[in-house]
Write a protein that binds this DNA or RNA. Sequence first.
RNA 1: GGGCGAUUAGCUCAGCGGGAGAGCACUGCCUUCACACGGCAGGGGUCGCUGGUUCAAUCCCAGCAUCGCCCACCA
Length: 779
Amino acid sequence: RAVTEVFVSLYEEGLIYRGQRLVNWDPVLHTAISDLEVVSEEEDGHLWHMRYPRADGKGFVVVATTRPETMLGDAAVAVHPEDDRYKDLVGKEVELPLTGRTIPVIADDYVDPEFGSGCVKITPAHDFNDYEVGQRHDLPLLNIFTVDAALNDNAPEAYRGMDRYAARKQIVADLEAAGLMEKIEDHKLMVPRGDRSGEVVEPYLTDQWFVKIGPLAEPAIKAVEDGRIRFVPENWSRTYFEWMRNIQDWCISRQLWWGHRIPAWYDEEGNIFVGRSEEEVREKYASRLTPDTSLSRDEDVLDTWFSSALWPFSTLGWPARTGDLETFYPTSVLVTGFDIIFFWVARMIMMGLKFMGEVPFREVYIHGLVRDSEGQKMSKSKGNILDPLDLIDGITLEALVAKRTSGLMQPQLAPRIEKATRKAYPDGIQPYGTDSLRFTFASLATQGRDIRFDVGRIQGYRNFCNKLWNAARYVMLSAEANDLDINKGEVELGLPERWITTVLARTMRTVEESIAAYRFDLAAQALYEFTWDEYCDWYLELSNTTLGDEAATEAQKRGTLRTLLGNLEVLLRLLHPFMPFITEELWHRVAPRLDRQGKTIMLQPYPAAAEAAEDESTLAEISWLKAFILGVRRIRAERDIPPARPLAVQVTGGSKEESVWLQRNRARIRFLARVESVTEVEKEPEDAVVALAGAMTLLVPLANLIDPEAELERLEKELNKLKTDRDRTAKKLDNESFVARAPAEVVDKERHRLAETTASLDKLERQYQRIRNLVNQGV
RNA sequence: GGGCGAUUAGCUCAGCGGGAGAGCACUGCCUUCACACGGCAGGGGUCGCUGGUUCAAUCCCAGCAUCGCCCACCA
């Protein structure tokens, strides 16, 4: 009903008309198609140079063509008006070989004098350019093809009924026989094919329905220009403008079996009557129609994109003024791929503005197109399709091969497809699950236009799902192991608790901003990093220190458990849009422990960063603590010390603040770095391995374990790194214009860096000397 | 011909004016009681090339090269 309504109303306004025009004709499907449904590709062909004898007998003109068979429909030969070579020829006639006709020579600046001979044959009924030229010069339209693109009765008898390609061969042969073929060159040309049939389409003269698009396009261009509609990424608006400003009338009739029938009726003389129904037509045109006039309805149907263009309001009940329409039009965002900006997006904008008087949506989020790992567009005929279900449920190699090689348009490709498939997926595809797939696509949703699908990526995110699951398991186990009522009683939040909550708050902010900017990749990345690198790698370990500490108070344990569970619960809600199933399942286990009720996580509020508590002061302390622990771990790894063997660590130097931090975090260091003792000493031991944590030096005395040569080598490497760093910074600060012109903040930062690297260098240098001495003494 | 985009670690990609990051892959150690779909530690990049702007360029500008996409009527 909406379709009929729109059609009739556009017709009444004169924006839909029926006319005989050249359209792209698919000779296999026997239908007209729109410009957008034609795909041109470069193919090898020839350029035939043909001689047309001058009517006055003074030799020939030579015309070049890629389609010799169309010469039977030629109406003229054209030259450029300023081309001196042919000036005298304009207005004269030439003989059109094989036909017995003569045709005029005309001047038109469409002709490029540089190309070929500078003479062009003009075939108005079979070429879009020639049609234009024909219109300008009032040339006759001579259609020489049938709907199958075979020659019709307008062609000389000898060629009638021949297919266009057979005719081409015959005509070329005949011209050669007559000595009228000057030469044949190889030539690359763009060949237009129908995107459905793959057949070469023919510009063909038929009666079709068109939408006069100019008056619709103009407001649609304006809507994007003045920002009522915004493309994301913004660049796509340029593509949109480019097309809209060069738009041609839209051929909307199709000679197909299915679709919306065109609401037009014809009487016996072929007069057109447009209306919502035959009854309406009879009523409306009663003055011209008698009740016994027989009317027949137009056999054609509408281009499917015609009804799709109405989608934003037709789905809401239009033309009825429904509540839905009132509430939901316009929508806020349209999410789509760039391949249908023209087909669909632009047309929805035009129709929306026309019939609703308002844009159909405010933002158009254009995402990339998924391609295979080679960057090829996925298509059934190439056999490189990845079915989402196969990624979710997995598929064996044999089943995948069978799937890809069945029902092919070109069965001869099967062996190649099979080979490629066996190579790309030697073990088939593992089941990765819905959440992994969804998270993968979120993280692949970058600003680019292509998304190469890489199985490695989904595998990584499958592991991530698993990580989250196991982390939650740990949290639940910890909660069960303590029979504290965590929701009642005194709560004390320790350093790690305040820290992880702060980091979570910052993650929330990043996620919030990223989603607002349609950067789902950045949101996904932030969540991944928080979950894995902070919550699992550090906080779970730190929480263990408190929970496993017999000296810890109930209030402390309660604080830890509440933070473990509480942050996990928030994290689940944050992750829910990215991995709906796992988060739902886990949420039902976690939430009740926090006395949080709900039927589903889907109805829970999305966490808002503004409500989160932050404690900046924890960041520096934890990052120092991490440096300390990493330092010890590194010594252990590089000196090949068994992980189970506890170390005694001595520390020297360090700021006052760091001393305080050390006192506060002894238990955590002991636990996480597997250290049996940390002692502050004045004098550095003779034989030790060293690491730095801020201004503090960590020393692990290793009398017999140490391999002095190896240690010297390691130190040397580190010293070199620090030296280049120091030199570069020093050089920068020596530069007067840097100090004068760079922002004070940046200069400060550089000064700081210089001080730090110099201090570190100093410490490592001393260590280096000590070991050097040791080695020398040994010798 | 016009328009748009890409070029960053072996691969897939983030970053985009103040000392380059992730995932996968790679190397070594570890079956430590959430997780071997794991832990810990590491290796790997003159950020396509040439100029310019700037105190400072992977990032901004210009040109070039290579690759890609979309439009278009060069017979």
